[in-house]
């Protein structure tokens, strides 16, 4: 299996996961690179994405596996794919995959918190996220459950960002169970609603294994 590392940012962050799959399928056809198709009644290109990204979240560390056929070298793949990508999607690297996506443990994220009508409550938020526990109500398929989200994080740092925003950096559990960036912020809404930002923009910056090494 081959793997690509790619960015999805700017306008492209609004492309949904389903649409991204369709788009990547077409990007491959435009590139002229032959890839493996699934067997069966209705064959389609085999593509496996590591961690589906929510609409509106940017990322510089997306991973996708596929089967490269026909003797093309992995090194030539990024340039050939990039020529056919919509704005905001850029393939950074292509290589033979050596480890499975199940080894992914952490996702590093950045959240930009915007406060339109007041000063940023930097200290109050630092205080909130340094509590012993952060128990929030998490909606699941079977209703809702109370969960302490702190064990699902590997550190939360908050600092002043540009243009008077707050920049929150955090490491979140990627799977089993996952904590989404939105859930991290919903702790504010649930536990200290007076500190809720007017808007939050998210960005995935790195994907890591259990030893905290970047996962490739």
């Amino acid at each position: 299996m081959s793997r690509i590392l790619f960015k999805k940012e700017g306008r492209a962050k609004f492309i949904s996961h389903l649409d991204l799959m369709r788009t990547m399928q077409r990007v491959f056809i435009r590139s002229g690179l032959a890839i493996r198709h699934t067997e069966g009644f209705n064959p389609h290109p085999y593509m496996n994405f590591a961690m589906p990204l929510s609409v509106g979240t940017e990322s510089v560390c997306e991973l996708m596996d596929f089967g490269l056929l026909g003797g093309a070298e992995p090194e030539e793949v990024p340039a050939r794919l990039n020529a056919g990508c919509p704005q905001g999607i850029e393939i950074l690297d292509c290589y033979e995959e050596k480890r499975k996506f199940k080894d992914i443990k952490w996702l590093d994220i950045e959240a930009r918190l915007f406060y339109d009508y007041r000063a940023c409550p930097l200290e109050a938020l630092r205080e909130l996220y340094s509590r012993e526990q952060l128990i929030i109500e998490k909606r699941t398929k079977r209703g809702s459950a109370e969960v302490d989200i702190l064990p699902l994080t590997g550190g939360i740092e908050i600092e002043p960002g540009e243009d008077g925003q707050l920049l929150m950096r955090s490491r979140l559990s990627a799977q089993d169970p996952a904590l989404s960036p939105a859930q991290l912020i919903s702790a504010i809404d649930q536990l200290a609603p007076e500190l809720s930002p007017d808007f939050t923009a998210f960005r995935r910056v790195e994907v890591r294994d259990s030893d905290l090494h970047p996962f490739r």
Partner: peptide, 15 residues
Amino acid sequence: LTRVQKPARYTGGEY
């Protein structure tokens, strides 16, 4: 765009 349905139709930037 984070609040509306199907935001990709309002962004441009297509191939």
